[in-house]
Amino acid sequence: SLQWLASQMAVDPRFNDAMVRIVYNGLTGAEPLAPPGDNATEAEWDAYNAESVQLDALKDSFVANNQNLKTLIKEIVLSPYFRADGLTTESFAIVHEDTGAARLLSPEMLHRKINALLGFEWRGPLDLYSVAKDNDRRARLLDDRQYYHQIYGGIDSFVVTQRLTEPNGLMVAVQERMGNELACYAVPNDFLTAAEQRLLMPFVETTTQPTSSANQEAIMQNIQHLHSHLLAEDLAIDDPELQLTYQLFISTLEAGQAAVGSTEDGNLPFLCRRTNDLLTGDDLASPLTTDPNYVIRAWIAVAAYLMSDYRFVYE
């Protein structure tokens, strides 16, 4: 019977090894290192031996706690192979070349991350979201017929059974489209809510321009917040990375304002406009369709820049 088979498998020592490796791979995104070959370097052997010691310790803890899966998960999360942020010295850089939990998010994981960070899923223009929110055929990262599930490395468990762990050209193109679309949707949508409830724009308004030191400080604070919220970067306010993003905002703002009246007008792009309630589809009392000073579009450029960064799709 299945019960007998399960009981026999559970007492086989290989079961414990397999469970540790499966859960380790699931949490870190990395396969345990294979034994180095005869021509392996000392560094490769050091890396393999160090990881093997850690895996053996995880297995011992798992077995000692009556094969409790919660214990195994906790021990992996607390291990240096999951939590390490970097090396304190370059001495072991070669040994730990492949160490770390950063991995390309699967389509399903990225789908959930977008919802958590932006407050909506990637299902197309937000004015149509009330219709699309319950239809997985409209979910850009879940549907493999019209959209990007398999293009972005997903599996169907029939023909495609192996997830892609390294991005290719098509996946990069999907990410660029994702960054541009989501920024277009998210920034105007965020400005519809009160500042204290916003996910992306808590420090600025649609009228905040760098015309005073107070406004410049608010813009920098919001850029710092976006780096933290979207890329999980804890950067000081004078960090060069924030300065680069600030310059992107300023250059986009200045170029856009100079073009308004000629190649640009005072309206948001059609698909970026917000006129309907996100969940009900009812008309908004105060729709957001215009951007006369180009501030919203400058923030859209910043958000697209950050969501096109590799750190947005890796964790």
Score class of each variant (00 low, 15 high):
V63F: 04
P188H: 09
Q146A: 03
A218L: 10
M178T: 08
D291W: 09
D98L: 15
F203V: 09
T280W: 03
A232F: 00
I296R: 09
A18Q: 12
D277G: 15
N68E: 08
L55R: 13
R137A: 11
S52C: 06
G100H: 01
A301Q: 05
G119T: 03
N66G: 03
S106V: 07
P269F: 11
L226T: 01
Q67S: 11
R103W: 11
L164N: 07
T208M: 11
D190H: 05
V302E: 11
N39I: 01
P107H: 12
N267K: 12
Q8P: 00
E51G: 11
D239H: 12
E108I: 03
E233T: 03
E264G: 06
E42V: 09
S7V: 03
R145V: 14
T207K: 08
P13E: 15
D17M: 13
D239I: 02
A47I: 01
L87D: 02
T41W: 07
E196V: 09
L104D: 07
L72G: 01
Q150H: 12
I114P: 02
I155K: 07
G169I: 07
A116Q: 10
I22C: 08
V11A: 14
Y305S: 12
A232Q: 06
S228R: 11
L306R: 02
A64C: 08
A34Y: 02
Y310G: 04
I155R: 10
G154H: 05
F270V: 15
I22R: 13
N222H: 02
L126S: 10
E233G: 04
Q3N: 15
N66W: 01
A236Q: 12
L182S: 09
K59A: 04
L170I: 00
E233K: 13
A57H: 10
A34C: 09
Q8L: 14
Y152T: 05
Y314P: 02
E97L: 12
I219G: 05
F82T: 04
G153S: 12
P35V: 04
A93P: 00
T245K: 04
W45N: 14
D282A: 12
S213D: 14
R311S: 00
N168A: 04
S308Y: 02
D283C: 06
D127W: 04
L235E: 02
P167H: 06
N189M: 11
D283F: 01
G153T: 06
F62I: 06
K74Q: 05
E51D: 13
I237H: 03
L164M: 09
L284H: 13
D309H: 10
Q216M: 15
A6S: 04
E44Q: 15
S228V: 00
I223P: 01
T193Q: 11
A186Y: 01
L226F: 00
Y129L: 05
L58K: 06
P32H: 08
D143Y: 06
D60E: 06
I223D: 05
P240Y: 10
M19E: 13
T71K: 14
N189Q: 14
R311A: 01
D239Y: 04
A43Y: 01
W299C: 02
A102D: 12
W45F: 14
P125H: 06
L141H: 05
N16L: 00
S157F: 08
